[in-house]
Simulated assay, not measured.
Amino acid sequence: MTTDNTTSPGTGSNRRQSGLARAWPGLRGFLGWWLDALASWLPQRVRAVFGLGQQRLLLRRQADDLVLAMTLPVQPGEPALRDLAELPWDAVAGEQEPMARLLTPRIANLPRWLLLPARSGLRRRLQLPAAAAERLREVLGFEIDRQTPFAANDVFYDARVIGRRGDGQIDAELVVVPRASLEAAVTALGPALGATLSGVDMADAEGRPLGVNLLPVAQRRRRRDPRAAWNIGLVSVLLVAAGAGLWQIRANREAAAEAFETETKRRAKQAQKVADEKRLLVDTVEGLRFLQETRNGRPTTVEVMDELSRLLPDGTFLEKVSVEGEKVMIIGLSSEAASLVERLRPSKLWKAPQLTGALVPDQAKGKDRFTITADLVVIQPRTANKPPRGQKARPEGAP
């Protein structure tokens, strides 16, 4: 059996997307906590102007009246309630917009939530792994059948994190309300007021909202985020500033690169000129040294004549002495021509003397004409054995 280990091109991108999807809930929670912590330092009016108060208009039924309350965030995650007004329940159900005549426009436009009493539903506290916090609602949705006497299709539910433990566990709470009870409570508000609800929360034993939203997503009214305009403006300014900064950085880098290139070319020309002058000077000095050493290593004509006068016998007459390159040629008449080669051999100024051609007798003078050639002993200059620049001298006999 063969196994195909080929990875599809989209596998890497899918993994990245899944990693971002897992990290996003935690990041979103951190940003929300950070924003709430910053907003808690601002006065209430300032928070209201910038939409940082996260205030809600809560509707709860008390006997035959509808009580209107507003959340006042004292600390992040611990809102307080302030009752605003009480309306007869029958009067509220028939009006189109009962809030407009009682509340200021700013409060009337707050997100409206129906607050159910604590006895309306069930709450179950569970311990779960910390990884479950990323998809807490989906995880606890599978626990409804085991933790409550209801089926999952017969209730509306939500979940919240109560606390985190040091052993990698979290304390979570499952809040369940029967579908029929929630629908009846929303229907009792009337079609006009029920359609304006952004969520349904449930109160705890002390009457404070739990912070869950039991209303189905399809029935929630989406209100314009008061911070959206500020966020768009700030993002636009940030993008413009970032673009301008990047453009300025790019322009500065280009200018610096052009200046550096110009300076580099100028210095390269100077360096090339100095190198050429140095090479010319070195070549001239080495040439003069080579000529001097060559001249010093070769016997002069005077030395050759002096050596000949010392070695040749008295009955020898020279007609011509020629020094060409490393060769010396001697032409003359001698009565001892046959022995001249042996007489010249001990000299240190030349080597390998030999007769060139046959001896020619001169009857008029009674002598033999001879022609002798020899190789001058030349001391090679030191510069002649120097290796080319950048190479090392090889030992003799090396290939």
Rank of each mutant, 00 (worst) to 15 (best):
R60Q: 06
R369C: 00
Q54H: 14
I379M: 06
A100E: 10
D204A: 00
P299Y: 12
T2M: 00
E319K: 00
P361V: 05
M305H: 13
L81C: 04
E303V: 04
I379A: 10
T262M: 04
G390D: 10
P111H: 14
E78L: 04
A203S: 12
A271N: 12
A91L: 06
A184N: 13
D368W: 01
A384V: 02
R224K: 07
E138M: 01
I249H: 12
R345M: 07
G53M: 02
G190R: 07
L340S: 09
T6I: 03
G168H: 10
R394F: 05
A195S: 10
L210F: 02
P191R: 12
T301M: 12
A275S: 15
N213W: 07
R16H: 15
P9C: 03
A172V: 05
N252Y: 07
T264A: 15
V304K: 10
S339G: 07
D4K: 04
V67D: 11
E173F: 10
M1W: 08
V175D: 07
A130K: 06
P216C: 03
G166N: 12
N5S: 15
A255C: 02
P105Y: 15
L344R: 07
L81M: 05
I249C: 06
T264I: 01
Q169A: 11
P381R: 10
R221S: 14
E303P: 07
R279D: 11
P313L: 00
V282A: 08
S18D: 11
R310T: 03
I107A: 13
G190E: 11
G29R: 12
L340W: 13
D167I: 02
P149Q: 09
D368C: 01
R56C: 10
T301I: 03
A159M: 03
K320S: 14
G332Q: 00
L84Y: 11
L140V: 03
A393H: 04
E277T: 00
L210T: 04
P98M: 10
G243Q: 09
R208W: 05
P313Q: 08
L31I: 00
A69L: 06
A63Y: 08
P79R: 14
E342F: 01
D83T: 09
R123V: 06
S120V: 01
D375R: 15
L197M: 05
A172W: 11
P209V: 02
D225M: 00
D83Y: 01
L291R: 15
G26E: 06
R101C: 03
L59M: 08
K351D: 13
V328E: 13
M70D: 05
D65G: 03
N213C: 05
K386H: 13
R160E: 13
D375F: 00
E86Y: 09
L280N: 06
P25E: 13
P9W: 08
G199H: 12
V282F: 04
A80C: 01
L84C: 04
R106C: 09
R119C: 06
